[in-house]
Computed example of a mutant assay.
Amino acid sequence: MTKKLSITSIQKAKGDRPLTMITAYDALFAKLFDPIADIILVGDSLNMSFGGKKDTLSATLDQMIYHTQAVCNGAQNSFVIADMPFGTYPTAEKALENATRLFQECPADAVKIEGGQNKAETIRHLVDNGIAVCGHIGLLPQSVRGEGGYKVKGKNEEEAKALITDALAVEQAGAFCMVIEGVKAEVAMHVARAVKVPVIGIGAGNSVDGQVLVFSDMLGLFEAFTPKFVKKYLNGAELVKEAVQNYKDEVESRRFPDEIHTY
């Protein structure tokens, strides 16, 4: 990429080319992804892949600000979206207070909020006050405890209609794009066709307007389990462990540091 995407260029990508989104939580990986990814998401997934927690719910606004600052330090070209963590947007006014703080303390381009029709008023209030919003519908990780687990959506006609209603409400509230997660592929396709803004999928098939993956899943660094929707583009965990083992072997055998690496 030679030019940073704007909200307008992201919206214009719909029907033209699929958008590539990837998570990052620090400047190091953000800098690696920056020349390639259209959008970097500072996801509250950091609570799991970075913090070792079982879900995203205990991520705090302070954590999200810290990691978003780090990502923005490394990303000069990618459009950066920061997740609003659980509990920071129970009302429209509280959402504006917390999103304003995030915008003041780090140069994120937008925030992401989970929820459909029930969060339309909140999204509209943020947009009306200068906060760009990416929506998130379908499977909502912040609702996992309330729903009793991670459950695929769009399994019947009622759920399919509800998802389209959610997408339309999020669009009409002013969101410039939205993530759709854990939704049957055919239903996700109909959702994407129902709205004029890009719909970026994760576990939602190939007929939407882009894809997002958690970087540690995509690079094969997370070993506990692999969700069905994840493709590993690198066997990262094995490569890292092999490198560290080689380092250990050379330290113990005094092959490192050698003459080349000694002052």
Rank of each mutant, 00 (worst) to 15 (best):
D26A: 03
G52W: 04
G43V: 09
S45T: 15
S58A: 14
L46E: 01
F50D: 01
L57C: 12
N47S: 15
A24M: 05
P35Y: 05
D55H: 10
L57K: 14
K54P: 01
S49P: 02
T60K: 08
Y25A: 06
P35V: 10
L41C: 04
G43Y: 01
L32Q: 12
A30E: 05
F33K: 01
L57V: 14
L32R: 10
D55W: 07
I39N: 02
K53C: 12
K53I: 00
D55Y: 08
V42Y: 02
D26P: 04
L41R: 08
M48W: 06
T23C: 04
I40K: 05
Y25G: 03
T23L: 02
A30V: 11
S49E: 03
K53R: 13
G52L: 07
T60H: 10
S49C: 10
F50M: 15
M48N: 12
G43H: 02
A59C: 14
L57T: 13
L28A: 14
S49V: 15
A59D: 04
T23Y: 00
D55S: 13
I40W: 02
T56V: 15
K31A: 15
D34L: 07
A30D: 05
D38V: 07
A30C: 11
M48K: 07
F33I: 02
D34T: 11
F29T: 14
Y25W: 14
L32H: 11
I36F: 15
D44F: 08
K31P: 00
D26R: 00
I39P: 02
A24Y: 03
A59K: 08
K54Q: 14
N47T: 12
P35M: 10
L28E: 10
S45P: 00
K54T: 12
M48I: 15
G43L: 04
G51W: 05
